[in-house]
Design a protein around this nucleic acid. Structure first.
Lengths: 232, 232
DNA sequence: CAATGTGAATATATTCACAGCT
DNA sequence: AGCTGTGAATATATTCACATTG
């Protein structure tokens, strides 16, 4: 059967992180009845440069039509295929504390094709309780669920102290990618992907900007130097 | 009384996002009794290149000692000062749905100096209920709380449909930085910072990697086919 | 002499600008 | 005519490698 290679090319990380946004925007314009969209229009919606949109999309292939733009439905499909989201991905959450429970209840995952098939914890208080419509299981059950439900993506939301052990278990169980909400640096074997979301860290970055503004108030004068590197 | 400029230099974004991690790691090694640390050691803990650590830290100033390393307490203090986290930052959360409630209950914010002083929603069902130890207020109250409590950072967790309006209100109320959990592209006036966390988007990126792995397993044969089909 | 701080080298990302299609 | 796709130019980030220094 036509194996129809979904992707030979490797998409640069910087472009990859924008694909989910494009995909979402395409969904919105579809609802609005648009059948075609230009890079300029999509760029405007995404609040990025149009050349960036075109270059990002060019990593998927040449799916645009010169003089016309991109067909929304076709482009959506191609992005979905590239991201691998043209199927359901079962996920598990490890850690049923505040954040884990929150994530389990968060509708945004299911909505985009990530169905929760297990929530795990080691705390006997939590095991057996229901979270996100699912009965919290003991971490010892992780491996079985991962294997029977064919889970390759795990979400980590344990306390920092037990995070590495939880990662080890996820990896041993067969999970290949982990979304880590624990503010710790965790190690995984080669071939396993781990991406991090540091919620408090995000706020710390914002406080940097706020502080900068506060500081520059003492400057009063805002010299907007519009220096353009003009080439001779 | 010298104004003791906390920061004249502007730290590159790529370096800035690592400062919270360094700060956290320095806290950990402090607990372990270390008083000094080299860029090699910190790099190992952070799982990054040592030159990167030194360059990142160099944006703060020359706080290391050649042949010795960095004094942990002093470096921590400097990073805190640079990030502006050597003080409490009151925050508000707009949107008391699943995610908003979760974030309100998330201990990680307070732990790092971001005290929740208000949770807002427009849904009469939610207004009046208690979330994260705080009574949910109507969005109309936002402005007063922001002003009286001197809030400059807001967290956005509304439904997508009302997100832009919520942003407008935050900005009008005087909030200068927004952490956006809503998967929409939102616009803010110049001078206001908005940073985005797209939870489902993160999973979509992971599914890309998982799919890549799956594809490369089926590689095995197919050396005869030139490659991409397609083309009319 | 061990480790920083930093220029220089390299790698990656963004943007420009336009040739080439439809 | 209008828009894509992409080389070339620019900007930003990472890494190397070493002179410098306590």
């Amino acid at each position: 059967m036509g194996v129809s290679v979904s992707s030979r090319r490797k998409i640069p990380a910087a472009a990859l992180i924008r694909l989910p946004m494009y995909l979402r925007l395409l969904g919105e314009v579809t609802v609005q009845g648009m059948t075609h969209i230009s890079s300029d229009q999509l760029a405007e919606l995404a609040a990025v440069n149009a050349a960036k949109v075109r270059k990002d999309l060019s990593y998927l292939g040449s799916y645009g039509v010169r003089g016309v733009g991109y067909e929304v439905a076709f482009l959506s499909y191609q992005i979905q295929r590239e991201l691998g989201v043209n199927r359901e991905w079962p996920i598990v959450i490890v850690g049923a504390g505040n954040l884990g429970q929150a994530l389990a209840n968060y509708g945004g995952f299911v909505e985009r094709g990530f169905g929760l098939v297990g929530v795990f914890d080691t705390d006997p208080e939590k095991v057996g309780s229901e979270v996100g419509g699912i009965c919290v299981q003991h971490l010892d059950e992780l491996s079985e669920v991962v294997q029977t439900r064919n889970v390759s993506i795990g979400v980590l939301a344990t306390p920092a102290a037990t995070a590495q052990e939880a990662v080890n278990r996820l990896v041993r169980a067969g999970v290949g990618s982990i979304l880590n909400f624990v503010p710790s640096v965790l190690s995984v074997p080669r071939g396993v992907h781990i991406s991090k979301v540091d919620l408090a860290g995000e706020l710390q970055i914002l406080s940097y900007y706020e502080q900068q503004k506060a500081n520059s108030l003492s400057h009063i004068q805002a010299t907007t130097t519009s220096s353009r590197a003009v080439s001779a």
